[in-house]
Amino acid sequence: MTVKTRIEDKLNAAFEPERLIVLNESSHHAGHQPDMTGEGETHMRVRIVSPAFTKLTRVARHRAITDLLKLEFDAGLHALAIEAAAPGEPTRW
């Protein structure tokens, strides 16, 4: 199972999102560090709209997501960009 699929599965189960997009942006970070070739799944972006975020601050939303994905970071995920919104909030995507 890919990192992207594991992230999608965990986010779907935990937050029951109305919209969810997980993007692999690893290729944009080639050379970021000596061992980063741009291949693999080291840099991901999460775009998520969920009712679970309705009363949470931006920081609390990010913490909830990063806490959920701790094992992915432990397994080699280097960076995660998060765009989290509650239903009805504007998004840029």
Score class of each variant (00 low, 15 high):
Thr91Asn: 06
Arg58Tyr: 07
Asp74Pro: 01
Arg58Asn: 13
Ala60Ser: 09
Ala86Pro: 06
Pro34Trp: 15
His28Phe: 15
Arg45Glu: 12
Pro90Trp: 09
Thr2Gln: 08
Pro34Phe: 15
Ala52Pro: 05
Ala86Gln: 06
Arg61His: 00
His32Ala: 12
Gly88His: 10
Pro90Met: 06
Glu8Asp: 13
Asp74Lys: 12
His62Pro: 00
Gly40Val: 10
Arg47Tyr: 13
Val49Trp: 11
Val49Ala: 07
Arg45Lys: 12
Gly31His: 11
Gly31Leu: 06
Pro90Lys: 12
Glu8Trp: 13
Glu25Tyr: 10
Arg92Pro: 02
Ile48His: 02
Met44Trp: 09
Leu23Thr: 01
Ala13Val: 03
Leu71Pro: 11
Arg6Gln: 14
Ala75Asp: 15
Asn24Met: 03
Gly88Lys: 06
Pro51His: 12
Asn24Phe: 12
Met36Thr: 09
Lys4Ser: 07
Glu41Cys: 08
Glu16Asn: 15
Gly88Ser: 05
Ala52Asn: 07
Arg92Thr: 13
Phe53Ser: 01
Asp67Val: 10
Pro34Val: 11
Leu77Lys: 02
Ile7Thr: 01
Ala79Asn: 05
Glu18Gln: 14
Phe53Arg: 00
Lys55Leu: 03
Asp67Pro: 05
Glu8Gln: 14
Ala75Leu: 00
Gly76Ala: 08
Leu11Thr: 00
Leu80Gly: 01
Val3Lys: 00
Glu25Thr: 02
Val3Leu: 15
Glu25Ser: 04
His78Asn: 08
Pro90Asp: 09
Trp93Ala: 03
Ile65Gln: 01
Thr2Gly: 07
Met36Pro: 00
Arg47Asp: 06
Ala52Gln: 12
Phe15Lys: 01
Arg61Asn: 03
Ser50Leu: 07
Leu69Glu: 06
Ile21Thr: 14
Asp35Cys: 08
Leu69Asp: 04
Thr5Phe: 13
Leu80Trp: 12
Ala60Trp: 07
Phe53Met: 01
Leu56Thr: 06
Arg61Val: 00
Glu16Asp: 14
Thr66Gly: 02
Arg58Ala: 13
